[in-house]
Structures are given as C-alpha cells and as structure tokens.
Simulated assay, not measured.
Amino acid sequence: MNPLFTALFDDAALFPPASMGLPEALAAHRARRDSALAPLLGPFVCPVSRLGEVTGVRVAVVLPTADTPVPHHPSIVAVEAPEAVPGPVTTYSELPCAEIDAIRLAALRAAGLRLKLRTGGVRAEMFPSEDVLARALWNAVRGGIAFKLTAGLHDPIRHRDPVTGFEHHGFLNVLLATARALQGYDIQRTLADQDGERVAAGVAGIDEVLAKAVRHHFISFGTCSVTEPVDGLLRYRLLPEDPR
C-alpha cells in the first residue's frame, strides 16, 4: 500500500454527522481492524465521557477542556484537547486555523505537542477558507510541527456540498499541499483545486522519500465515515485493489 495512506483515517464514527451509537461504531471498527482495511485505519476516536465503555481497540481520547483529567486506560494512544498541555502519550492541541503563527507553533514544539486543526463542521463558518488553511499548514510544515485534521474531509477533493452549500476541503488536496509546502511552493491553489484527476495525479507522483516526509507532518484526519474516503481513493485509482 502507498505509505501516504497508511493509518491515515482516524475512526470518528461517534461524532457528527454520523453520530453512530457506541456499540455499533465499535463493532464496525473491530471488523475493519480484522479486514484488508486495517492498514488504512488509525485509532478509534472517543470522547472521554465514553472511554469506560471501550475495550480492545487503540483509542484517541478527546477531552472537552485542557484541564479535564485523563483516566488511566491501557488502550489510549493519543489525547486531543483544546489548548492541550503535554501528557504521557502523544497529545494534540486543537487551535483555530486562523490563530496559527510562528510563536504559537514554537510553543507547541517546545512542549512536545502536536497540532489539531478543524477543517469543517455543522456550520459554514467552521470551514476555513483556502487561504486560512494554507497559512496554517504552511506554518506547521515549515515550523516542523506534526498535525492532524478533523471534520469535513470525507471526500478526497475540494468541492461544494450540493445539499448544505458548504465548501469542503479534500484530503488529497491536503496531502498534495503538504508535499508542496515541504518543497517550498505556494499551496493555496493546491487546496483550492477541484480537478480531481489533476490532484490525484499529483498525489500519485509523490515519491517514497517525499511521502515519508509528508506523513511525518500530516499524521491523520478524523472521519466519521471510513467508507467514503476509501471510495474516493478507489475512484482515483490510488489503491491497488478494493480492500473492503
């Protein structure tokens, strides 16, 4: 499998818009872990309030505030919180895209924290524009910060949702933009590009060395649907075979 896609999809089925029940979401996650989809999967994303109900899977736990205590749980592999503080496991600090600058990123790097960026939600204003996201990603890459994204990235390519009218970023656009930021190129046009074949061709052209550098920064993104992004990779012929 292309290393660009290994463990790229954090399973956030408990969160909107899917909002699955925990038993159903956990069963589906376990089934994927036992299937050919396993190499694509990151951890199961779970709010701290439901952590006690989760067993037998790797968990990224989401805290409502930075000072919410993290209970002891053997399966926790990552913690996500607004303005997070360093902890004993990999920790992501969620910051607004518009507030990402060199000073804040230097503080994260000094604390050993990773960055979490929100790229969508249930209201139009929760979707950062191409220029705002481009600045955030550029600063993160050039500042040596690892990051994950969350919300609004089910589709591989930038598009306008025909039902809501929201402008969604594409995860292939973000992968390609990260690669181009590493190469020193402007990335706003890459994030705005809605030509799926062109974006997919750019991603397919990323060599093994650059792919490793891309994923050193762009760790994963949370998605309430694993099926949709996999469908997208298959649509653009970026997986050697259907893993479902």
Rank of each mutant, 00 (worst) to 15 (best):
G21W: 03
G21C: 06
L22H: 10
A25Y: 00
A25M: 02
L26R: 13
A28Y: 02
R30F: 01
A31Y: 05
R32S: 09
R32I: 01
R32E: 05
R32N: 07
R33W: 02
R33I: 04
R33K: 11
D34S: 15
D34V: 03
D34Y: 03
D34H: 09
S35Y: 12
S35P: 10
A36P: 06
L37C: 05
P39N: 04
L40C: 11
G42T: 07
P43S: 15
P43T: 05
F44H: 04
V45M: 05
V45P: 06
C46V: 15
C46W: 11
C46S: 03
P47Q: 13
V48Q: 07
R50Y: 02
L51T: 07
L51S: 04
V54N: 05
T55W: 05
T55C: 09
G56L: 06
G56T: 06
V57K: 04
R58E: 15
V59G: 09
V59E: 02
V62N: 08
V62E: 08
L63C: 10
T65P: 00
T65S: 11
T65W: 07
A66F: 01
D67Q: 13
D67E: 15
T68G: 01
P69K: 06
P71C: 08
H72N: 14
H72R: 13
H72Y: 13
H73L: 09
P74T: 04
S75H: 11
S75D: 15
S75Q: 12
I76G: 02
I76C: 11
I76K: 10
V77A: 13
A78F: 01
A78K: 00
V79T: 11
E80T: 00
E80C: 08
E80Y: 00
A81S: 05
P82E: 06
E83S: 10
A84G: 05
A84Y: 05
V85H: 06
V85W: 05
V85Q: 13
P86Q: 12
G87V: 03
V89K: 04
T91K: 03
S93I: 00
E94M: 08
E94L: 13
L95W: 13
P96Y: 02
A98I: 10
A98H: 14
A98W: 06
E99I: 07
I100Q: 03
A102M: 00
A102T: 10
A102K: 04
R104A: 13
R104I: 02
L105S: 12
L105W: 00
A106S: 14
R109P: 00
R109N: 11
A111N: 07
G112E: 01
G112A: 01
L113S: 12
L113W: 10
R114S: 13
R114N: 14
R114P: 00
L115C: 10
L115D: 01
K116A: 15
L117H: 11
L117D: 07
R118E: 10
R118P: 04
T119W: 07
T119M: 11
T119L: 03
G120F: 09
G121N: 03
G121Y: 08
G121H: 04
G121W: 11
V122H: 10
V122M: 14
V122F: 07
R123P: 03
A124R: 15
A124S: 15
A124C: 03
E125Y: 07
M126N: 12
F127R: 12
F127N: 13
E130L: 02
E130Q: 11
E130M: 01
D131A: 14
D131F: 00
V132Q: 06
R135L: 14
R135P: 00
R135V: 07
R135A: 14
